[in-house]
Nucleic acid binder design. Structure first.
Lengths: 252, 252
DNA sequence: ACGTATTTGTTCGTATGTATT
DNA sequence: CAATACATACGAACAAATACG
């Protein structure tokens, strides 16, 4: 690490730590304050200033007496509407199960383009009807490059989550992504699967995830709009957003 | 402030600062580091540790050489889907204008109940068709307790934002609130106003805001779903959510 | 079960840099 | 230019929680 007189010392340390983290360098334990002081030849104060940022970002967790640990970024990403949707269902004690509608190898020009991959790319494709306590609440389609996801063909996805298996079978770690929500009307097949009428609007959530090795996932989830809402709450400028069960009282 | 040996010093300072802020004590300038040191008999480091938290929460902004200032919490709250919707329109250089459809004093049992107010409560009620460069994109209804919002009857709301006027005419400061999004189909009148068909789904955003003196606002906004989407993006676990113009490329 | 070493958290002191008034 | 105010950076010590022989 080369010292630059213009940018603060702690920031230079931070940038270097980020670089090393992105190489997966601290998977088995993050350096202690003392080690950082020695390695970067800075005071403890400066080292901690750098580390503080990783901490507030949630990338790093520190325990008094134990040490610092890189937060293994869940592929599910503890942010984003979909995560909160699936979690809120389990938080409320419901059992999630899925009907596997399709599971096969496909080529999809549009998906490949969206993910910036070659058109010939072969995808692991999984289409499921998701149920909470038996009641259907979403239709879920997911495309994963076969190069990464090939081992998943062996898994039974009625009970298992895709992310769990990905984490178990690959070393892919997410670095960024996004989800987009829009309102829509269900197709006839979606009506049948979800058990709703043609005029019952739904959420369509699109999701894209990228790892440090490249694009990982393209996903489209159609969620019953009569059963769920997306809520943002705040208190003194701190805000959290999540899907939740639709409140019974309706206005409009 | 009484010192307690169990909780950290900086936290005790922080709590006291919060208490004083909630009384509106620092509206004309926040204490300097030196003043904090003297007032609380702590080191500069400790004082800064307390202030740091206010800073990361966005409650306080500090300027090198100038001083620290309490961030006047905008009524609009720089969080939440609606804020991002209206802002994104202006960010893209479009001009926002509104047709005032209704502006009158009303009683509304359901709204009053939602806000926890007496049924007899009289509301300032405003209903507008919002346009971006002339094109309608949302129908907006807002209820405000007349006790607070009475002065607003004098304002022309074709060009002016409700929040701006509220901040100008009242001392109400928001402490918390929420927004809820659900998909819906437009009513016949909404179809006419927004210029969309009966099968064109919309977002319905409900918003509730509370000040330190009590409930302030109940709001329902119907947004064209063909023109806007709600997006959450993240990078290394930091996430931001906002409404934005609908991308042209559509899948499904 | 105990004591010691380790690691992070808190708190003090001090000095210098940089931007604003 | 001088004074002010926040930012950065060094050093030092003790507290609190944990890990380990």
């Amino acid at each position: 690490m080369r010292r630059n007189p213009k940018t603060p010392l702690w920031e230079q340390v931070l940038t270097d730590l980020r670089r090393r983290m992105s190489r997966g360098e601290f998977t088995s334990g993050f350096p202690t304050d003392r080690e950082l002081m020695q390695r970067y030849k800075v005071s403890r104060h400066t080292a901690r200033e750098a580390v503080r940022h990783l901490q507030t970002e949630g990338v790093l967790t520190r325990y008094k007496g134990r040490g610092s640990f890189v937060q293994p970024l869940s592929l599910e990403q503890r942010v984003g509407p979909l995560y909160s949707l699936f979690r809120s269902i389990e938080d409320q004690g419901h059992v999630q199960r899925s009907d596997v509608l399709e599971l096969r190898s496909v080529r999809d020009r549009e998906v490949a383009e969206q993910m910036g991959l070659a058109i010939a790319t072969k995808f692991f494709f999984l289409r499921r009807l998701r149920r909470a306590d038996g009641t259907p609440f979403a239709v879920d389609e997911i495309w994963l490059p076969e190069k990464i996801a090939a081992p998943l063909y062996e898994v039974n996805f009625e009970y298992t989550a895709v992310y769990t298996e990905l984490e178990r079978l690959t070393d892919a770690r997410p670095v960024r992504g996004w989800e987009r929500i829009r309102p829509a009307l269900p197709s006839t097949e979606e009506q049948r699967l979800l058990g709703i009428g043609p005029r019952q609007p739904v959420f369509v959530v699109s999701r894209y995830t990228e790892t440090h090795r490249g694009p990982l996932e393209w996903r489209t989830t159609v969620v019953r709009g009569d059963a769920y809402t997306f809520t943002t709450t705040w208190s003194n400028s701190k805000a959290t957003s999540e899907f939740g069960v639709r409140p019974t009282k309706k206005r409009r």
